[in-house]
Amino acid sequence: MFGFPRLMALLGEYKGNMPVIDLLLGQLAEFTGSEWEQEDDVTLVTLRRSESSGESEIITMSTPHIDEKPGDSDWRVLTEMSIASEPGNERQAMEQVGQAVRALNLPERRLEKLKTAVAEATMNAMEHGNKYQPDKPVTIQVLVSQATLMVRIRDQGNGKPIAEPHTPDLEAKLAELQSPRGWGLFLIKNLVDDVHVISDEHHHTLELILYLEGDNYGSKKS
């Protein structure tokens, strides 16, 4: 059992160099190993108190799927950012993510695909999650392990489930049977190797996955 003593020891040693939830999930993945099959949900909650303002922020996260590949317990945060929910700000997000992953030397095509997926996911988060309220930022984390790059994009969607849109069908759109819009999630799913959608009481989170090696590397080549 992972147990409270281990949890308390980890928190006691925590130096604040990465989000505490990421630290704990990484340790959990290392503890269980890659063969472990998760049967129940794992939900972690942190309470952060700001000394300067006295304000508190609660961050809740259900288990992300970072235990899918062996060796993925060792996550490193490349960058974290907060983007105001204003039309057009997705460009800022995609450029900053592009800068953050520069050291990984991704092939140009994969980098372009990632940037477009980040822009689309950020736009969805600003529009559908945060309703373009500038005081509700979209938070973006870029994490890398030996085998995987993950961009985690989170809005404050109040836990409403993310509706799965119709698969866009160009013929239906040209026949005016579907809206001309509605391409965002389709693009995201087709431009990165994997997408995880996580909803909890306060947030929607999209995890965009690019595999850096292994059988799934560049699995969305088409």
């Binding site: 040209l174 005016e176 001309p180 819009r181 509605g182």
Partner: peptide, 16 residues
């Protein structure tokens, strides 16, 4: 320089 899903939607509207 940049096209997003809304831009694709615009092209579909123009195509119609």
């Amino acid at each position: 320089e940049y096209m997003n899903s809304s831009g694709i939607g615009l092209l579909v509207t123009l195509l119609i």
